[in-house]
Design a protein around this nucleic acid. Structure first.
Lengths: 295, 295
DNA sequence: CACGATTAATGCTTTCAGGGTATCAGATGG
DNA sequence: CCATCTGATACCCTGAAAGCATTAATCGTG
C-alpha cells in the first residue's frame, strides 16, 4: 500500500465509476481495475460492492475514504511545508539576546520579523554575551544580539545600534548632585561591573575608560547578570556603568547620569556565516533595516 | 513522492548512515542513495548535509522528519482501521428503536454492545414502528428493535421479549377500582391508541382483542407517539392499552391494571439479511443473549 | 605522508510492478 | 433478443527501481 493506491481508491470512491476514475488518474480502465483489486487484496478488505452495472462503497470503504482524505491531505501538506521550511518561510529560529539589548532593539526586531514570517517560530533565549558567543559557534543559536567583540571570522555581523554608557547610582549618593562625572571623579567609587568572562566587550570598555587616564577602577563586585548589578546599586553597594537604553526604566531610588567622553559599545546582530537555517537571512535583513541612531 | 519514499527518508534520518538505513529497508546501499537523491530532487529541497564521512539533517530535513512520522503513523492507522471496520470491531451502527422498547430491552442491549465493541459508534434513532420498517428496507438503519409484524423475508429477526398489554387510566377513573377488566368492561370506554399506519402490530393486537369478543373498540384519539397517548390519558381524555414495560414509570396521576387474557406482542431485534455492515452480526448475537422473560 | 578503512556516489545490468491494447462477460433497456 | 454499457481478464511491454561492481572522497594511523 502506498499513497498512490490511496489516490486510486479515492478516485473510485468519489466517482463510483471505474472508467471515469481511471480517466481522472490519467490511465486506462483495465490497469485501474487491477489496482483496485490489488488494494482490496493486500488490505484483505472488500472496499467496493460491484457488479458490471453498479459500484458502491462498503461500510469499510466509506470509513477508509475519510481516513484516506485525511492522510492524503497531511501528505500533501508535509511536501508543501518542507519547501516552505527550505525557503525560510516556515520553521524555527533560535534567537539569543543579552539583557543589555532587551529594552532597545530586540523588541522591534522580534516584532518586525514575526510580522514578516509569521510561520517561523521564534525561540527567544536570554543569555550573557559569552554564552551567546559559545552557542552561536556550537550552533545552538541561529542568530543573536550581543555586543560587538571584534574579530569573528565565522560570524556575519549587522550593526544595530551604538550605545553610550551612563553611570547609575542611588539618588542619595554624593555623585547624584556632582558636576561632570569622569574617571577622575570615579577613582574612589566602588564600581560594580560584570566580569570579563561574562561580558568581555562591556567590561573591556569600562576598563579602558579608566586605564586611558591611568586609573585602575575599584571594582568591588562582579555579578554575572545585569539585573543583579542594578539591584546591588539600589542597595547602595556601589555605582555601575550600564548602557543608556537600560537607564530609562530604573527603580524608584535610582538615577542615571551622563559620563564625560562616555565609552561607546556596538550592539550587533550576529549569525554563523555557515548557517543552514534559511530563516536567518531575512532575520538579518530586518536587522539591517532597523539600524538605530548611531550617535 | 510516496509513503515508500517517506520511509526511506525516515530510515536515513534516524540512522544518519546510508548503509545501515539501506539495510533497514532490506536493500543495498547504491539504490538507496539514489532514492534519497531522487526525493531531494523531486521536492527541490536538500534534506541532508552529507559528505563521504558524515550525514546530517538540514533544518528542512528535521522539520520534514516530524511531518513524515505523523503521516506514516496516520497511514498505518488507516490501513489497520479499515480491517477493523471490515471485521466489525470498529465503525458505526445505526440503531433504530420504538419508544415502546426504550424502557425494557434497549438500554441493556445498548450497554452490552458498547462494552463488547467500544470502537463502534452506536447512532441511536427513536422512531415509530412503521418508520423503522421503512428505514430498515431503505438501509438507513442497520438494525432496530420493533414489534414483530410477521412476514418479512428480507429481514433477520431475533425475539427479545414477549410483552402483555396493560390498561392505563387516571387514578380517579371508575375502572381504577373495578374488578377484572376485559373487552366487555371497556366496551363503553374512550380508547386512545396509535393508528394502524404508525404501529400496525400494536394496533392490530388491540383491535383483535376486542373483535374476538365481537366488540368494536371506541377509539376516540389516534396520536402517533406513545408519549402523547400517555399525556392524553393523564388529561382524562380516555384510557389506553400499552406494553407492560411502559407502565413502571407512569406519572403521578396515572395507574395501570392487568387485562383478562391480555394481548401479547413480540418485541424483536431486526436487521436486513443483506446487511453490509459487519458490526451488525455481533449486535444480533447480543440480542439473542438477552432474550427476556417470555411470559 | 602513504596506505588502509570507511562510506557515499556512479555505471551498468536486470527484473518485475504496473501501464497499454484487445477482448470477454454480465447486466440493462428498448 | 440485441445493442450498449461497464467491469474483469489475457497478454504484452516499458521503465522505475533493485542488485553488483566500482569509484571517489575523507579520515585515522603507523
Amino acid at each position: 500500500m502506498d499513497t498512490r493506491h490511496m489516490r486510486y481508491f479515492m478516485a473510485l470512491a468519489e466517482t463510483l465509476h471505474f472508467g471515469r476514475a481511471a480517466e481522472r488518474m490519467n490511465m486506462s480502465q483495465p490497469p485501474f481495475s487491477r489496482q483496485i483489486a490489488m488494494i482490496e487484496h493486500t488490505l484483505g478488505v472488500k472496499l467496493f460492492e460491484r457488479n458490471s452495472r453498479n459500484v458502491a462503497l462498503t461500510p469499510a470503504g466509506k470509513h477508509f475514504m475519510k481516513d484516506c482524505r485525511n492522510v492524503l491531505g497531511q501528505f500533501e501538506e508535509a511536501c508543501r511545508d518542507v519547501r516552505l521550511v527550505a525557503s525560510g518561510m516556515k520553521g524555527e529560529l533560535r534567537f539569543g539576546f543579552m539583557m543589555h539589548a532587551a529594552h532597545s532593539v530586540v523588541p522591534q526586531l522580534v516584532q518586525l520579523y514575526a510580522e514578516a514570517r509569521s510561520d517561523v517560530r521564534l525561540v527567544l533565549d536570554e543569555r550573557t554575551p559569552t554564552e551567546i558567543d559559545e552557542m552561536l559557534v556550537a550552533g545552538t543559536l541561529d542568530a543573536a544580539v550581543t555586543f560587538d567583540c571584534g574579530y569573528a571570522p565565522h560570524l556575519q555581523t549587522v550593526l544595530l545600534a551604538r550605545e553610550r554608557l551612563r553611570i547609575i547610582m542611588r539618588k542619595d549618593h554624593p555623585l547624584a548632585t556632582a558636576g561632570q562625572i569622569g574617571p577622575e571623579e570615579l577613582r574612589v567609587e566602588k564600581i560594580i561591573a560584570a566580569p570579563a568572562a561574562t561580558a568581555p566587550a562591556l567590561r573591556s570598555a569600562i576598563n579602558s575608560y579608566f586605564l586611558a587616564r591611568g586609573i585602575v577602577p575599584h571594582v568591588v563586585l562582579e555579578p554575572r547578570l545585569q539585573h543583579t548589578i542594578i539591584q546591588l546599586v539600589a542597595k547602595g553597594l556601589g555605582v555601575a556603568l550600564i548602557p543608556a537604553s537600560l537607564c530609562t526604566e530604573l527603580g524608584a531610588g535610582l538615577m542615571s547620569r551622563a559620563l564625560t567622553d562616555a565609552p561607546q559599545l556596538d550592539v550587533v546582530l550576529r549569525a554563523p556565516v555557515t548557517t543552514k537555517n534559511p530563516a536567518v537571512s531575512t532575520f538579518m535583513e530586518i536587522g539591517k533595516s532597523i539600524q538605530r541612531t548611531l550617535l
